[in-house]
């Protein structure tokens, strides 16, 4: 598979709903698609990264209204274990058609849960819409705190928006201050599990989206599966997005491809390095477990 995965179309897009773009991270693709899917009965609810009692700490939640979707819009650069609700959504919440948003690794988890539903009773055919967000790396909550409070010198609760782009981690506060730190410096804070991740643009999602490749405020969208295609066509027909062809926006698909290649090449090296990390008594290398080979 290509580093960008299989896709039927790649588009630059932005939501036409101003309520959404006011709160969304980029073009509001995820929130708009879920709102549309709820409205149309394509999903009964969506598992998203909801608010919690700590600032910028996401708490997975099942949203069934647009208001709940809006309250959870925007990116939290820390782990939101959205899969923890996937079976629960079909049980306590009683959903027959589940939407879920996740990073590429989380979408991988969704597909494994469908193909190998070992402890996922009656879940496989209830996943109605799996939306992926691009992801270079993720951070523990404590790492995010260190970045925002120690490096950027802002209080977590005073931050209005966080963003990664153009080689910088940027923090915008409620009172208008902007603090930045170079992305290079956050490397030591990246959660270790990300170092073996071989997917940048959520190759296994129905539709995946991220900011890279499109102008500020716009998103790059890959429409991948049959399901994704149907939902995207429907949302387009309903006038929910303005779009531009990818070859007419800057920096365009080339940048997405470049970053995807960089990430996968680097992490493939990490996966390989694990094989020879140690030493056996006979002088040959001793390796760590490789999840891409066997359990």
């Amino acid at each position: 598979m290509d580093v960008l995965g299989n896709y039927k179309s790649a588009i630059s897009a932005r939501s036409t709903d101003k309520d959404i773009t006011k709160k969304s991270q980029d073009g509001g693709i995820i929130t708009t698609l879920f709102a549309y899917a709820l409205e149309e009965g394509i999903i009964d609810g969506a598992i998203i990264a909801g608010p919690s009692d700590e600032p910028w700490k996401p708490q997975p939640m099942v949203a069934t209204t647009k208001a709940e979707l809006l309250a959870a819009a925007g990116t939290r650069y820390t782990i939101s274990p959205n899969l923890s609700l996937i079976k629960e959504a079909t049980r306590s919440y009683g959903l027959d058609r589940v939407g879920i948003v996740g990073t590429p690794c989380q979408i991988q988890a969704v597909r494994k849960a469908q193909l190998y539903p070992i402890g996922m009773r009656d879940v496989d055919d209830k996943i109605a819409l799996a939306l992926g967000i691009y992801c270079m790396e993720n951070l523990s909550y404590q790492a995010l705190e260190a970045i925002v409070e120690d490096h950027c010198n802002q209080k977590m609760e005073s931050v209005k928006k966080m963003d990664i782009g153009k080689g910088k981690f940027t923090v915008y506060t409620e009172r208008g201050a902007v603090s930045q730190m170079p992305l290079k410096l956050i490397h030591k804070y990246v959660q270790p599990g990300c170092n073996v991740c071989l997917d940048y643009v959520a190759n296994l999602a129905d539709i995946s989206s991220g900011s890279v490749g499109s102008p500020d405020g716009w998103s790059t969208v890959f429409v991948r599966s049959m399901k994704g295609n149907a939902v995207w066509d429907g949302a387009m027909a309903a006038g929910l997005f303005e779009t531009k062809p990818m070859d007419q926006v800057k920096p365009g698909l080339d940048l997405v491809k470049k970053l995807a290649t960089e990430k996968i090449t680097k992490n493939q090296k990490n996966v390989d390095a694990r094989k020879t990390i140690g030493l056996k008594a006979d002088g040959t290398p001793k390796g760590l477990r490789n999840p891409y080979e066997s359990p």
Binding site: P60, I79, S140
Partner: peptide, 26 residues
């Protein structure tokens, strides 16, 4: 311990006796 967890939450979602909770993403 193998440096592989990325905090997806699948384990917590799977456990039939709800023995697993996610604490700060793990």
């Amino acid at each position: 311990n193998q440096s592989l967890c990325m905090g997806c939450g699948t384990c917590a979602g799977t456990c039939p006796v709800r023995a697993i909770t996610m604490e700060y993403g793990k």
